[in-house]
Amino acid sequence: MSSQAPSQQTRSSDRVADAGTRRANALAHLLLNGVLVVLFGALFIKAGALPASMWEPLGAGSFPRLVLAVLVVINLGIMAQEWRHFRGASSAEPGLVRRWLWRHRLAFGVLALFALYIVGVPALGFRLASLLFLTLAQLALGVRRPRSLAIAAVIAVTFSFGLDWLFRDVFIISLPRGPFG
C-alpha cells in the first residue's frame, strides 16, 4: 500500500496537469482557428472582387473562394471539437504558460537569433551575419569547453566564409555581400 501511494499521487497530479494542458491546448486551438476563420472569411469576401473572365466560367477568384469556403468550414469543425475538449477539461494550474515558456526558452532563443540573422543578412552581408549567428547560436546551445569552442569557431568560419566562397566561385551564385562586401 505504501509503495503504491506515491505513484498514485503522481498519477493523480499528472492527471490534473494533463487536464490543465489539454484545456490550455484547446484554448490555443480556439484562438488560432478563430483567427483563421476571421482571416479566411475576410479573404473570401476580397476574392469576390477579383475580375471574372469572358472566356471561362470560372474567374480568377472562383478557385480561391472555393478553397477559402472549405477552410472556413474545416476550421469551424476543429473549433467545435476543441470547444468540447475545453469544456470537458478542468481549469489549468496557475503558472502553466510561464512554465511552458521557460521549458521552450532555448527554442525561442534560437528563433530570436535566427530572426536577427535573417535581418542581418542584407544589412551585414551573408559572411559576417552567418559568422555571428553560428558563433552565438552554438554558444547559446551549450558550447563551453575550450576544445568545443575551437571546433565551433572552425565551423562558424567554414559555414560562413567557406560557403560564400563555394557559391560565389564554384556555383557562380553571389550571396548577399553587404557593406563590407
Binding site: V110, F114, Y117, I118, V121, F126, S130, F133, L134, A137, Q138, L141, G142, V143, I151, A152, I155, F159, S160, L163, F167, L175
Partner: peptide, 15 residues
Amino acid sequence: PRSVIVPVVLVCCVV
C-alpha cells in the same frame, strides 16, 4: 551534437 547541427542546417536553409 545538436548545438552544432541546428545552427549549421539553419544557415544552409537560408542559402
